[in-house]
Design a protein around this nucleic acid. Structure first.
Lengths: 232, 232
DNA sequence: AATTGCTTGTGACTCTGGTCACGTCAATTT
DNA sequence: AAATTGACGTGACCAGAGTCACAAGCAATT
C-alpha cells in the first residue's frame, strides 16, 4: 500500500527531515498490517528494510539455544525497529513479533541509508536513536538484577507507561503485553507474572479494563513498589 | 601522556582512518593507566571522551535501584567504550571498571565527533561498531534465558574466548574476570559460579594457570556444555 | 616473617520461583 | 449454539539457587 510523505513525518525519527527528502523516500515505503502473533521482522536473515510502527505494539524476541523465548524490548507506536540493517550487512539478531494487531510502515533500507549518509543531520538522528536503543537495553537488563520479582514486574510496568503520563497520579497502557510476553522480558515464568498482577489488582493499584487496556489506578504506589520502598 | 598516531592505529575502530586524520586526533588523546577495580568511566555524568582499551580488561557495570551490581559487557583490548557520547549529550548510563590493571587511551569526544561527521567512512565505522554493541548485548541477554546455570557459565566463558581461538581445540583467557564479575554478568551468585568452575576443573575442561590466566583445556567439551548437548 | 586483603572453596539451611496440572473465562470460529 | 482457542487464575510440590558462615589459599605490603 502506498505511503504519503505526511504519514512518514508522523514518526519521530523522520519528522525532522525536510519535506523534499520525505518525498524521495515515500515511493520506497509501504504500509502493512500484521495480526497479533505474526512475525514482522525475521531473525537470521539480512533484512532489506526498516520497520516503523504506526499502531499496535511490537516485541523484539530472541531464542536461547534450548529454544526458550527471550524478550528483548517493546516497540511503541511512533518508534521503529530493524535499524541495525542501516549500519552493516549482518543478519538481524532477533525476531520482532506483533503483540497486538499492528500497522507498520516498511521503508526500504538502501534509500534510507543513502539519505542517512548524505545528510549529517539525518545520520545524527539515526545515531541518536541507536544510542537510545542501547540505553533502553541497559535499563531493561538492570531490571533483571532485582532479586525481588514483584519489583521487577512493577519496574517493567513503569517502563511501559509513556513518559507524558509519568507526571500524573494515574495512567493507562493500551494494548498491554500478555503475562507471557512480560514473563520473557523479565526472565520469569508466566504464572509468577500472574501472581504479581493479582497482588497489584487486589491492592487496587492496577485494573484491567477489557482486553486492550490496563489502567494504572495508583501510579504513586506502583512507583514505590518499583523502587523497592515497599513490598507486595 | 602523549599519544602517537601509530598507537591510535592499533585500535580496530581507528585503524581504517587515513594517516592525516590520525595525526589530527593524536593531540587530543592521552594514555592512562588504571589499577584493578578503578573506575574508568563514570555513570550519570556527561563524559567528554571515549575510552579505548589497550591492555587489560574492562567491564561495564550498572546498578539496580537496590544497589546490586549488574554486569553489562566486557571490553577486550583493541575495543572501546563510552561511545554513546558521540551520538548524544545524555549522561553515560553505566560505570566502566577495570577488572585487571589496564592501559587505556582517552580520546576527546568533540574532535572525534568532528571527524565522524565530516567523513562518511568514519561514521560508517562508528555506526557499525555501535550496531555490534547492540548485537553483543542481545547475545548476552539471551544467555540469561538459559534455565541451566552451568550452561550459562559455559556460554559466558565461550564468549570470552577470542574469535581466532574458537577454531582450535584449546584456548586461553588472559586476565580472566573473577567469579564475582562473572556472577553479575549472568545474574547468579558468586558461589554458584565457583561451583560451576569446580565442575569444569574436575572434568579437566578448564585449568587455572596462575592468577592472570585461565586455560581452556577442552574447548570442544566446553562448547558442548554451552550448547546444552551435555550437562555438568 | 607477619599482616592484610581479596579471591576462591565448601557445607548447611532456607525459601522462592519453576513446573505441572488443572480450572475458568472470554472471544472467535464453525 | 457448540466448539475451539488463547489468556488468565490457582494450588501443590520440589529442585535448585541464594544466603550465611567460615576456612583456605594467594599476593602484595609492611
Amino acid at each position: 500500500m502506498q505511503v504519503t510523505p505526511e504519514l512518514l513525518s508522523r514518526f519521530t525519527l523522520l519528522k525532522p527531515l525536510p519535506r523534499q527528502v520525505l518525498e524521495g523516500l515515500a515511493p520506497h515505503a509501504s504500509l502493512a498490517r500484521h495480526a497479533r502473533r505474526e512475525v514482522v521482522v525475521r531473525a537470521g536473515v539480512r533484512e532489506d528494510r526498516v520497520c516503523f510502527l504506526f499502531e499496535g505494539r511490537l516485541q523484539g524476541v530472541g531464542h536461547t539455544i534450548d529454544g526458550r523465548e527471550v524478550g528483548l524490548y517493546f516497540v511503541e507506536p511512533g518508534d521503529f525497529c530493524g535499524e541495525l540493517a542501516l549500519f552493516d550487512d549482518n543478519p538481524q539478531p532477533e525476531f520482532v513479533i506483533a503483540t497486538a494487531a499492528a500497522a507498520v510502515v516498511f521503508l526500504a533500507r538502501n534509500p534510507l541509508r543513502e539519505v542517512m549518509l548524505n545528510s549529517s543531520s539525518v545520520s545524527n538522528i539515526v545515531g541518536r536513536k541507536l544510542a537510545e536503543r542501547v540505553r533502553q537495553m541497559t535499563e531493561q537488563r538492570t531490571l533483571l538484577g532485582l532479586s525481588n520479582i514483584d519489583q521487577r514486574v512493577c519496574g517493567q510496568l513503569y517502563l511501559l507507561i509513556k513518559g507524558e503520563q509519568r507526571q500524573v497520579e494515574s495512567g493507562e497502557i493500551v494494548n498491554p503485553p500478555t503475562h507471557q510476553e512480560i514473563a520473557i522480558m523479565l526472565n520469569i515464568s508466566r504464572e509468577r507474572v500472574t501472581r504479581a498482577f493479582q497482588a497489584l489488582q487486589s491492592r487496587r493499584i492496577v485494573r484491567r479494563d477489557g482486553p486492550g487496556r490496563l489502567v494504572i489506578i495508583d501510579l504513586n504506589s506502583l512507583r514505590r513498589f518499583a523502587r523497592g520502598e515497599e513490598e507486595l
